[in-house]
Amino acid sequence: MTVNEEQTTISVALEDLTREVEALHAGGYRLVQIGCTGTGETYEINYSFDKDYQYRNLRLTVEPETEIPSISGIYWGAFVYENEMHDLFGIPVTGINIDFKGTFIRTAEKYPFSVTRSGGDRCRNA
């Protein structure tokens, strides 16, 4: 009865991203999420897909300010994650189908998760 969950992570290069995503799309995977992690100097972007609880994770590592192609042409619903990525991390994503242009999640400070953000206390009301 119980299905075993597997998680795999594959690193992809920026230029291969669209192709890989298309391959997963063709393979019947659904988009679970796109998430971003700041790792000091660079960003790690995880594109997570799932098919029958087989969890595939494409990992893209990019420098700040690198433009990333949107996958919303392949997965229509990707726009929520891509807009969020842009608003919180300041990663420029090009060609989103519904581009909120930085107004999806408006924050008190711009790009709160950005790795290049100039110092200052992130805490408020401490």
């Binding site: 709160p112 805490c123 408020r124 009301n125």
Partner: peptide, 8 residues
């Protein structure tokens, strides 16, 4: 309170 987006 300490979140960056909360006025508090």
């Amino acid at each position: 309170r300490e979140c960056y987006n909360i006025v508090g």
